[in-house]
Amino acid sequence: MKIAIKTSVITLSALMGTTAFAQDNTLTINSFGGAYEDAHRACIITPFEEETGATVNVVTAYSADAFAQLRAQKDAPQFDVLHFSGGQEIVGASEGLLAPIDAAKLTNAADVYDFAKANLAGGEGPAYSIAAIGLVYNTEALPEAPSKWTDLLNPDYSEHLVLTDISNGYGMLGFLMLNQVQGGDLSNIQPGLDAVTQLLDAGAIIVSTSPEIQQEFAQNDAWIAPYASDYAYTLRKAELPSGFAQGAEGTPASYITANLVAGRPNMDLALKFIDKEISPAAQECFAEALRYSPTNSKAELSSEVAADIAYGEDGVKGLIRFDPATIEANRTAWVEAWNKTIAR
């Protein structure tokens, strides 16, 4: 998707070094680069600028980096709206870096699913998109879609199964779901590690990045991989037969949230931007472009797009959010245990 963009892109250092901004009609946000940022501009940023006459300055910064900058700037924040995909809003709100949001100031809030706006008053911004983690599969090798997470343990799949390292955020969520269906929880990941050992012994492989998943599907007879909903679409665009299935036991979810930074002069304008992000039109556009799940119940998608994601009341009721704070607190120990398990 190639779109002519008028939005100005600046580095954060340039932003901090100038005092010439018209603060009353300018916002500074982060986005995640690449195809995501292209869609962010097309679906939200450019329409918002055209509708309001505002200028949106974009700093390309992924969640962890954006949060680190927010902390570093706590006495003089430079962002107006920050987007996170790793649960950083939970910590940011608890530290007072993010401002509470009055749902009454968001015209679209009433139509957003409850789980996506659970703590607005506490400073955790709404989820405007969801990356659902399920089973990406080869539709030619498996004309009948897998339907359960326990299908990963099917011996017929063993030599055609691709797992993703838990250093990858989606890989972590897929592993935690495998751990859960094997009887584990966030206080005990050993059942998941035992399952990984079993799968590797049977012929499964582990990759670290999404392009490696594509390579395995294209060249090495991969049939199934626990990964994000948008990736089945990525594979199809590469002319690889692929589909996405939600496991009956539940669907791990990465919440992509829009958060109001505390202590900024343009909070009303920032709220209008966040309101734009949770609108049906913006979320329909995101789903079409990237295959992320809408959180606005009024978003209407074609059957083709809906097949690739967790969609509608039935689709989202199975979403599971593993506590981001617990994941972050245990990440180092879990990665160490994982690395010992896969060493062979």
Rank of each mutant, 00 (worst) to 15 (best):
M267T: 14
A202W: 08
A238S: 14
D314P: 00
A310H: 03
Q283P: 01
G318E: 05
S293F: 07
G318D: 04
G263A: 10
Y311F: 12
A248Q: 10
S210C: 06
L271F: 05
E300S: 13
P226E: 04
A270S: 11
A270Y: 04
E284H: 03
L271E: 11
E277K: 12
T257A: 04
Y231P: 10
A307N: 15
A307S: 14
D308T: 15
T251W: 07
L235T: 02
L319H: 04
I213A: 10
T257I: 07
A218L: 13
N220Y: 03
T234L: 15
L235V: 01
T326Y: 01
A258H: 04
I278Q: 06
I274M: 12
W223D: 07
W223A: 05
Y255V: 05
V316A: 00
Y255K: 08
Q215A: 14
A218I: 09
D268Y: 09
L271Y: 06
F244P: 01
K237H: 07
P324E: 03
S229I: 03
A262V: 10
L199C: 07
A232Y: 02
S297I: 11
Y255P: 09
Q283N: 10
K317A: 08
G263S: 05
F286C: 02
K237T: 06
V196E: 05
Y255H: 04
Q214S: 15
V207F: 00
D275S: 05
G250Y: 01
P252L: 13
F286G: 01
N220R: 15
L319K: 00
L200E: 08
D308I: 10
N220D: 09
P226G: 09
R321W: 11
